[in-house]
Design a protein around this nucleic acid. Structure first.
Length: 276
DNA sequence: CAACCGACCTGTTCGC
DNA sequence: TGCGAACAGGTCGGTT
């Protein structure tokens, strides 16, 4: 499932591959799930019309959202659980669950594929009002140690839940919250307002460290995380995970058995020896 | 309002 | 071997 590192890899690749191209035509499929993906546009034809003829000026990211800046608007793409963007020759047969196709004047098509259709695409203004409540990015320096400290002090909830709440910090999901809590040696179910200064500092350091390592490995394609890049290639970070999906295996740091705990329809992985 | 939880989806895995 | 149940989790919306 794409989180910040995977979205950032896609952003970088898009920046290199499609900036400067003009969208000749946009096409939304007629299936219920395609309609669901463009659910912010009651009439999909309005989305198609807004995109046709637009030039792609820049590709940015807000949390897990990709933002393609166009001449007179912005195209926002959220990959949800199973969304993929693919670059493919215009003649190539579409993969199953292809919901939106953008034909570029540079030759290829940019295709949105999403079996579960949890993701979405929409066109909006450059001010991005729909993303106004997306919290600070862990990588752009906006989340200072002091800011993290007061954020944590103000909430009575599990620290893992806060890390995954996009209003507070953006881009972190189940994989990387587990991994950065391991790196910070904090139990995922610790209450936010129970963390002392040294623990907050460890968490503040662990966040960017874990995310940058994952970006360096071009993201995580775990067994149930079918992330692929624009060319369909997998990421290599799965081999470097310390706790996520390693329940029952030995911790590489202390040898204890990694635990997997169920919590609110979700799972958390942690080392009972290292994370207190 | 803050915190929590079920629903939405389909491909894959698990158990009988 | 086959089939159905369980599982995966990002986000929205309803509830407490």
């Amino acid at each position: 499932m794409p989180e910040l590192p995977e979205v950032e890899v896609i952003r970088q690749d898009l920046q290199a591959e499609v900036v400067g191209a003009t969208i000749l035509a946009a096409s939304v499929a007629g299936s219920p799930n395609a309609r669901r993906v463009v659910r912010r546009h009651p009439a999909p034809a309005a989305l198609e019309a807004a995109l046709a003829g637009s030039r792609i000026l820049d590709v940015g990211r807000r949390g897990k959202n990709l933002v393609l800046r166009l001449d007179e608007a912005a195209l926002v793409v959220h990959l949800g659980m199973s969304g993929q963007l693919r670059l493919a020759p215009a003649g190539a047969p579409p993969a199953p669950h292809t919901h939106v196709v953008l034909t570029l004047d540079s030759g290829p098509q940019l295709r949105y594929v999403d079996p579960r259709a949890f993701g979405q695409m929409f066109v909006t203004t450059h001010e991005l009002p729909e993303l106004a409540r997306v919290g600070p990015d862990p990588l752009d320096g906006a989340m200072t140690a002091h800011r993290l400290s007061s954020l944590l002090a103000g909430h009575r909830m599990k620290v893992k839940a806060l890390l995954m709440d996009q209003r507070f910090v953006s881009g972190i999901g189940n994989i990387y919250s587990d991994e950065m809590l391991f790196q910070a040696r904090l139990h995922p179910f610790r209450m936010c307002d129970s963390l002392v200064a040294s623990e907050v500092r460890r968490l503040h350091r662990a966040g960017p460290q874990v995310l940058q390592a994952a970006i360096g490995h071009r993201g995580t394609s775990a067994a149930d995380a079918q992330y692929r890049d624009l060319r369909g290639r997998v990421g290599e970070h799965g081999g470097y995970l310390e706790v996520y999906q390693r329940g029952g295996q030995a911790c590489r740091r202390c040898g204890a058995t990694i635990q997997r705990a169920r919590w609110a329809n979700r799972s958390a992985h942690f080392c009972p020896g290292c994370q207190l």
